[in-house]
């Protein structure tokens, strides 16, 4: 235990910069993941015959072991943080995409029919009915994707993108358990922290009328 604190103190700078790199990788990957998966989810919810193939493709990505995916990408994209980001984005897609799709298609059809019958346009129905009602699902998808990404981002070290994986890997190589812990513990804290923040946002965005 003393050894662990000692490691924390002496390697403080290294841990800190790895921590920031880790946050950067996870945050950017999830943000881009949302930017891709959210509109795609909305589109496949409208054109449902494309839903299965599109979700299928992202599901196949998900089944590729993460280490292998990083390995595949290196010959194509070289090493560096962009390679790591692309791999992380690919993993973030499925939860967001699937939850967006499920959330929107799960909105009670009578609500949609009422909206249509009263003369709402498709865009109005999407923005005023479907998205607000699907928001709790979408947020849950984003939470899953975030926690997943924070975990997988530890592998970014193998493509030279840094992050807390660097510390863990260094610890493993030198049989230094304290160093491994000094890398792994912040990863866990980061995942929990992100999850709590997003849970709070999820609660705030759940329409009041649905909490009854």
């Amino acid at each position: 235990m003393n050894n662990f604190f000692h490691t924390l103190m002496t390697r403080q700078d290294m841990i800190q910069s790895a921590f920031l790199e880790h946050i950067y990788l996870s945050f950017v990957a999830v943000a881009i993941g949302i930017a891709i998966a959210l509109p795609t989810g909305i589109i496949i919810a409208r054109y449902r015959r494309y839903a299965e193939p599109v979700i299928g493709v992202t599901a196949v990505f998900q089944t590729i072991p993460s280490l292998a995916l990083f390995g595949f990408l290196v010959p194509i994209l070289g090493i560096g943080s962009n390679t790591a980001l692309i791999a992380l984005i690919i993993y973030a897609l499925l939860p967001i995409l699937r939850n967006t799709y499920t959330g929107i298609t799960g909105v009670d059809s009578s609500t949609i029919e009422a909206g249509r019958g009263m003369g709402m346009t498709r865009t109005q129905i999407l923005r005023q009915i479907e998205l607000p009602l699907a928001l709790p699902f979408i947020m849950a998808g984003i939470r899953t994707a975030t926690v997943l990404t924070v975990g997988i981002a530890t592998l970014a070290t193998f493509v030279g993108a840094g992050g807390l994986g660097d510390i863990i890997y260094r610890g493993l190589q030198s049989y230094n358990n304290a160093l491994v812990l000094a890398g792994a513990l912040p990863v866990a804290l980061l995942a929990i922290g992100f999850d709590m923040v997003l849970k709070w946002i999820e609660k705030r965005t759940t329409p009041k009328g649905l909490k009854i």
Partner: peptide
């Protein structure tokens, strides 16, 4: 125009279809 027409006609459905997230 169908949107204009629907806005000029009241519509009540069997399953009520109120929007649960609105007052």
């Amino acid at each position: 125009d169908e949107v204009q027409l629907r806005r000029s006609i009241g519509y009540v459905i069997q399953r009520i279809g109120l929007f649960p997230h609105m007052t």
